[in-house]
């Protein structure tokens, strides 16, 4: 599934295509931009990793696709096409059919993302009854199958358990089962392993990988942990302050990161070969606050390669690889590539 960039352009079919999406938050000092004209796309059968630090707009972008943004945060510009339809302009009732039916969501915190007073069998059955028109008995059978699919021991007996009777890893499996209930074309996983310990994280990643191959769906996996998803995704988008700064096939990104921010991220992953006395590398400074974005490149104040132009203009995401598959939004990186 790797090296997606060598596939001919024609065989790809866009499933999700986000163009110029801008998200603003209302503050006392007026609206502040959180996500700044982001462009994203996911092809059919493709797995996209979205990487970025906390608060860079990863989750909000995904929530905004389904129009699930919290109060005071809203989309002000841009469009999001899913299977040829604009999600932002769709009627509420059509959108509800997409939610859960065609796009499955897995949330960050399995401890609080399940209804505590509803048995998990019922929670699994809910989308099946609503989207697939199943009877209660059919939905219960299917719910049992789904729990088996996500590897929950004693699946059928567990249908009658309450969320608090399951461990965190088991609950995340239930969440995945709920996300997959209606065989969605796209599964959006919003940091699904953040609340779990390391061995469980690996299990969940492998589970999603296996299910993706079995069910042939597209996956968007949001994370701040580059290493975790290296074996899972086809392509990675690196987000910084609400913009995509680098978009590359996973191999290319790890082998040859071009944006200074991506380089910083990769350098900050601890390696086994490091000496115990080596300090972990980090990127100095903090990301810009919403409403206080610099005029030029948002990374400029923290960038080791910063030049005068970076403070004046915002670089656009330009294709630089052979097929244009490796794109970067950095004046310095672009100039280097042109020179090469």
């Amino acid at each position: 599934m790797m090296a997606n960039d060598i596939r001919p352009e024609a065989s790809r079919e866009r499933l999700l295509d986000v163009k110029g999406l801008t998200i603003e938050i209302e503050t006392r000092r007026g609206p502040a931009t959180i996500v700044d004209g982001i462009d994203l796309h996911v092809d059919k059968g493709e797995t996209l990793g979205i990487v970025g630090e906390s608060g860079c707009g990863k989750s909000l972008t995904m929530l905004s696709l389904m129009r699930l943004l919290p109060n005071k945060i809203r989309v002000t510009q841009g469009e999001a096409n899913f299977a040829g339809r604009d999600l932002q302009k769709m009627s509420n009732s059509d959108l509800r059919k997409v939610r859960g039916g065609e796009v499955g969501f897995i949330f960050q915190d399995p401890m609080t993302s399940l209804n505590p007073v509803m048995r998990i069998g019922q929670q699994l059955a809910e989308p099946l009854i609503y989207h697939r028109g199943m009877s209660k008995a059919e939905a219960r059978n299917r719910a049992g199958e789904l729990l088996k699919l996500v590897g929950i021991p004693g699946a059928v007996e567990r249908l009658d358990a309450y969320p608090h009777e399951l461990s965190g890893g088991m609950r995340q499996r239930v969440m995945i089962a709920i996300g997959l209930a209606c065989n969605p074309q796209l599964l959006i996983a919003d940091e699904p392993t953040t609340a779990l310990d390391v061995t469980i994280q690996a299990q969940i990643v492998d589970l999603v990988k296996e299910l993706r191959d079995k069910l042939g769906m597209s996956v968007v996996w949001i994370t701040h942990d580059l290493a975790l998803i290296a074996g899972l995704v086809d392509r990675i988008n690196v987000l910084y302050a609400g913009t995509v700064v680098e978009d590359a096939p996973v191999d290319a990104l790890f082998a040859n990161p071009r944006h200074p921010y991506t380089q910083g991220l990769l350098a900050s992953i601890p390696k086994l070969s490091d000496q115990r006395t080596t300090r972990l590398s980090s990127i100095g400074g903090t990301p810009p606050e919403p409403g206080r974005r610099p005029k030029g490149c948002p990374f400029a104040p923290r960038c080791p390669l910063v030049e005068q132009i970076c403070h004046e203009r915002v670089p656009s995401l330009e294709g630089t690889g052979k097929a244009g598959a490796h794109r970067v939004a950095c004046f310095v990186a672009q100039r280097k590539l042109e020179a090469a």
């Binding site: 939610r99 859960g100 609080t112 209804n115 505590p116 809910e126």
Partner: peptide, 19 residues
């Protein structure tokens, strides 16, 4: 979060409110 999760499942406001 479970309310957002329920909305992401496409459930109607009435079902979310009642259940």
């Amino acid at each position: 979060p479970y309310i957002t999760a329920a909305q992401a499942l496409g459930l109607t406001n009435r079902i979310i409110l009642m259940r």
